[in-house]
């Protein structure tokens, strides 16, 4: 009985940690670090609903009686172990003795002697503790943050999201460039819109600094992550900027705003034919919505 009640708190605590994390991110406007805006309302509504139930659980679970959980009108013996470790990974032979012992302990109010299945339970309780502490650490202690260049390296810059489809790029070619995002410019570069198209075009780009893998000394990208669902599917896109010795002025992963025009890439090592030629680069703070969609 006691085991089971302790077990039950695991879900309540984990729920509470998750709900607090979501509410805080929503209130401080940082949900966008993790999920696509289309989920904001749903996520907040479910967090509030679950929060109400979790608070109710704090009131009800301490006084929960048999009638409240096992719903059984009969059959009160021998089933007590059913949720001592619901994520039971390896049902051990000791399980049944343990069930009997807990059931016995249930009848007598005194503390039962440690039964054989006890050690396994302790191990599971310990693991549950690790999961709870890890969750608190990841959700409530590590400060929220965007993805870094480490992930850009894993995910091939401009490999995918920029190349959505040629139809979209054709629409881009004819439209007003002042509203273009890094994603739009990256699509055009990727689709090979050509030097004629870029001649005379100016742009202002805001993104984080990440080195060009083919010529890291002379070229860096002003980059953003494109997110379709949540940060786990983020795809890096970026516009290459030619600026020898850029490392001296701009740190990798720092945010900059660059304005200028496009031109042929003077770098022979870089794989990019066209680069952004900045007239001005200023360091800026990370924007409230660091990802593009």
């Amino acid at each position: 009985m006691r085991d089971r009640l302790l077990t039950r708190w695991r879900g309540i605590l984990l729920s509470l940690v998750g709900i607090v994390a979501i509410i805080w991110l929503a209130v401080t406007g940082q949900l966008g670090l993790y999920i696509h805006p289309r989920y904001y309302e749903f996520t907040v509504i479910m967090a509030v609903l679950a929060g109400v139930v979790v608070l109710a659980a704090f009131a009800i679970v301490p006084t929960a009686t048999e009638a409240d959980h096992d719903h059984g009108d009969a059959d009160h013996d021998g089933h007590e172990h059913h949720d001592h470790a619901p994520d039971d990974h390896a049902p051990a032979p000791g399980d049944h003795e343990h069930a009997a012992d807990v059931a016995a302990g249930d009848l007598g109010a005194a503390v039962p002697p440690p039964p054989p299945g006890r050690r396994r339970d302790l191990v599971w309780a310990g693991l549950a503790g690790v999961v709870i502490l890890g969750t608190v650490g990841a959700l409530l202690i590590v400060p929220p943050s965007t993805l870094t260049t480490a992930t850009v390296d894993q995910r091939d810059l401009n490999a995918s999201a920029a190349v959505t489809d040629t139809g979209a790029t054709e629409t881009l070619v004819g439209s007003d460039t002042s509203a273009f995002t890094i994603k739009d410019w990256a699509s055009l570069l990727r689709q090979g819109a050509g030097e004629d198209y870029f001649a005379g075009k100016t742009a202002t780009l805001t993104g984080f600094v990440t080195p060009d893998p083919t010529d890291p000394d002379d070229v860096f990208y002003v980059a953003r992550f494109v997110v379709t669902c949540c940060a786990v599917d983020a795809q890096p896109v970026g516009v290459p900027v030619y600026l020898p010795g850029w490392q001296d002025s701009y740190a990798v992963d720092s945010w900059v705003e660059a304005s200028g025009s496009f031109g042929t890439n003077p770098s022979t090592a870089s794989s990019q034919p066209i680069v952004f030629e900045p007239a001005d680069i200023t360091p800026v703070d990370q924007p409230a919505e660091p990802y593009v969609y």
């Binding site: 949900l31 670090l33 479910m46 679950a50 943050s145 940060a231 786990v232």
Partner: peptide, 23 residues
């Protein structure tokens, strides 16, 4: 960086899935 991205990626899966699991 790698630890930081590991935390960010894992947390994003949790924040994305948790409301659906609650529902």
């Amino acid at each position: 960086d790698r630890i930081r991205d590991f935390v960010t990626l894992s947390v994003s899966v949790v924040i994305e899935s948790l409301p659906f699991v609650f529902l």
